[in-house]
Design a protein around this nucleic acid. Sequence first.
DNA 1: TATTGACTTAAAGTTCACTTTAACTTGTAT
DNA 2: ATACAAGTTAAAGTGAACTTTAAGTCAATA
Lengths: 149, 149
Amino acid sequence: MSYSIKEVANMMNVVPSTLRYYDSMGLLPNIKKVNGRRVFEDKDFKWLRVLNCMKNINMPISKIKEYVELAQEGDSTLKERYNMILEQKKIIEKELKALEDCYKEFEYKEWYYETAIKAGTEKVVENITSTLPTLEIDKIPKNERKDEK
Amino acid sequence: MSYSIKEVANMMNVVPSTLRYYDSMGLLPNIKKVNGRRVFEDKDFKWLRVLNCMKNINMPISKIKEYVELAQEGDSTLKERYNMILEQKKIIEKELKALEDCYKEFEYKEWYYETAIKAGTEKVVENITSTLPTLEIDKIPKNERKDEK
DNA sequence: TATTGACTTAAAGTTCACTTTAACTTGTAT
DNA sequence: ATACAAGTTAAAGTGAACTTTAAGTCAATA
């Protein structure tokens, strides 16, 4: 099967011009062209899935491009790519942790507003909040902070 | 206890000018000023934690500002704020799901490169990948896709 | 044959979230 | 007294990731 740029854009939940932009940045190597038009084939989706994933974790285009270029060079770059994957995995782990902490904060806020709405005022709830556990902001270790010298 | 802008910036892992920018955008209401200088107090950290959290989930500044303005208006906006929280909770849930799927993809990639490096070539692994489960990109329901008409 | 619709490129424009700069004020240390 | 460090504002600058525009190509249909 083959797919037009519009079809693939729909699958990835972006507009066609975004895919053209990615292509112009070198993120879509080896895409077939027929009469000057991009034709996506089943084999391309293996990479599109990874690309979609890299975009989801806000990996910068420059970094994705770097990965693409290494992949183009073949087996000699296996270790480098492996290391990139390990590094990104760590970044995802951090992001997941941050998101989970935020989720907890929002779960608390949900309860906060439910309680406040029942009482008709948040004055009541505000006093309870003082017993909240400390959150991410308090847990950032000194040595990981910016602007320290 | 009171804290300078630099101290608070360190705690939030940003630079002072970022906090000044947030302030200029209305994200830091009711911050005390002494001799024209911002002085952060313990009571401010309740909001700073929430702000930190909202930034973590990439909530746009305009939306955060909206929330701040509602909070400034007092109890009459409790329901509106409650709904914003519920909406954001849903967004976090989606983001968490996407991140988890990406994590799986990267776990697979880790195995992929470990196998390829052992074999000295990725040719061997490429054949195995065909049996991989489909990922997020294939699961996006038609009606949630952009550019459809 | 003419029109329509989906594509193409190159280049300019937009948005967002900072970041930097320049000129200035204030409190503390020498 | 003077210099320094750390803060201040307003305004201009930056970088990333698109998005739009303008002008054109091509294949299928009226």
